[in-house]
């Protein structure tokens, strides 16, 4: 049997204790052990951004971190984003702009966009495109996503 470790962490405000194989990555743990299937797996080597989530305030690839490394961490996934405030406004803007089609990239795209907006990023289309360039979207062509981020920054979107 593969080696295991016990971990305790906070996920979307809940304390979670689990015994995990040391080789299990964080996103597989969240999806398969906790049922938090909002974080998606696209490439498993940190390129596509579908598993992007928040670990201790830092935007992180869920596929490039092991579950054992998350011991003691505080994690927010798409399921834990609040309905109000910036996250709510961003969801409203994504809906209004149709900034998602199949929705598979969307949880990771929201995480990266919230990082940009939260850091005080400007409604500068080139800078937004640069920031989102770690998140692959095959459906939209990105323009509507940039529009949605600008809408939030410029106060046009409300939760």
């Amino acid at each position: 049997m593969p080696e295991t470790r016990d971990i305790t962490l906070t996920v979307n405000g809940e304390t979670v204790t689990a015994t995990v194989p040391v080789r299990l990555n964080l996103v597989d743990f969240l999806r398969n052990s906790l049922g938090l299937t909002g974080s998606h797996v696209g490439c498993e080597h940190g390129v596509c951004g579908a598993c992007t989530l928040d670990v201790d305030g830092a935007t992180t690839r869920g596929c490039l971190m092991l579950a054992v490394q998350a011991d003691g961490c505080t994690i927010t996934t798409v399921e834990g984003l609040p309905a109000h405030g910036m996250a709510g406004a961003l969801r409203a803007a994504f809906t209004e702009r149709n900034a998602l089609q199949c929705g598979f990239c969307t949880p990771g795209m929201l995480a990266s966009a919230l990082e940009y907006i939260g850091a005080g990023g400007a409604a500068d289309r080139t800078a937004i495109r640069e920031h989102l360039s770690g998140n692959y979207c095959r459906c939209t062509g990105y323009q509507s996503i940039v529009d949605a981020v600008c809408d939030v920054i410029e106060g046009r979107a409300r939760a």
């Binding site: 999806r31 938090l36 299937t37 996934t77 399921e79 809906t95 929705g103």
Partner: peptide, 14 residues
């Protein structure tokens, strides 16, 4: 759209 934006999609691997 809202369902997908809340991480409540139902993809096969979910």
């Amino acid at each position: 759209a809202q369902r997908l934006l809340m991480g409540r999609g139902r993809f096969v691997d979910d």
